[in-house]
Design a protein around this nucleic acid. Structure first.
Length: 214
DNA sequence: CCATGATCATTA
DNA sequence: TAATGATCATGG
């Protein structure tokens, strides 16, 4: 199997800038919303394939890999801004307690993410084009890293002192601990599924990443 | 079953 | 519009 480095992935993805992602999804046999259901993750899945990945890299087994993320952009008063925050990775309460920022899973991921800006065309995202592809390398020496670490430490302290349930999406300046999970009711038990959380990059951070990459 | 892809819904 | 919390389809 071919090894796709991050640089290669970026190069591969850049070839698709301006392309209609929905058509590509059809080619790759990725379900979008055409079955009558909505697959919110289809853009991410197609991007993984466009990058040249043979299979899903869902959970990076170690820090040697990289992540692929897409972010929706839209126009607000003629300016292109991120529409939403971006999920980084799941929070593992045990790991969060034990690891400091620079040894954490979040940091390992954050610094290896390949960002893809994708145009958003309204609810259900029936089509999309790649706007831009970039990575986070340039930020490694930047001030924001310190502030992101501060956010991590804040969330970590809160977890240790007040527990997992005390966490909220309000925490953090650049990153936050939003809920994320399958949601709904478990049909087997008829009970609410347990709440899980993930790190999210706030819009300000996403915007910064793309501004700085010009 | 549940983590992962990320967007949708609701409220102010 | 922005922010936060909730949710869904998919694949292993």
């Amino acid at each position: 199997m071919k090894i796709i480095t991050r640089a290669t992935a970026i190069k591969n993805l850049k070839k698709y800038i301006g392309k209609d992602l929905r058509k590509l999804a059809l080619q790759f046999k990725i379900t979008t919303y055409e079955t009558g259901k909505q697959n919110k993750g289809w853009k991410g899945l197609i991007l993984e394939r466009l990058a040249g990945l043979q299979n899903n890299i869902s959970k990076a087994p170690n820090g040697l890999s990289y992540e692929l993320k897409s972010v929706s952009f839209r126009y607000v008063k003629d300016k292109l801004v991120p529409k939403e925050t971006m999920a980084i990775t799941m929070i593992n309460p045990q790991e969060l307690k034990d690891q400091e920022f620079f040894k954490s899973h979040v940091w390992a991921k954050l610094k290896s993410i390949v960002f893809c800006a994708v145009m958003w065309h309204g609810k259900n995202s029936d089509n999309a084009e790649i706007l831009k592809v970039t990575s986070l390398d340039f930020l490694e020496t930047d001030e924001v890293i310190k502030e992101i670490k501060a956010d991590y430490d804040f969330i970590r302290n809160k977890l240790i002192k007040k527990g997992f349930n005390a966490l909220t999406g309000k925490d953090g300046k650049w990153i936050q601990a939003r809920t994320k999970g399958t949601g709904g009711i478990n049909p087997n038990t008829n009970k609410r599924r347990p709440i899980t959380r993930a790190y999210y990059a706030r819009k300000a951070l996403v915007a910064k990443i793309f501004e700085d990459s010009k």
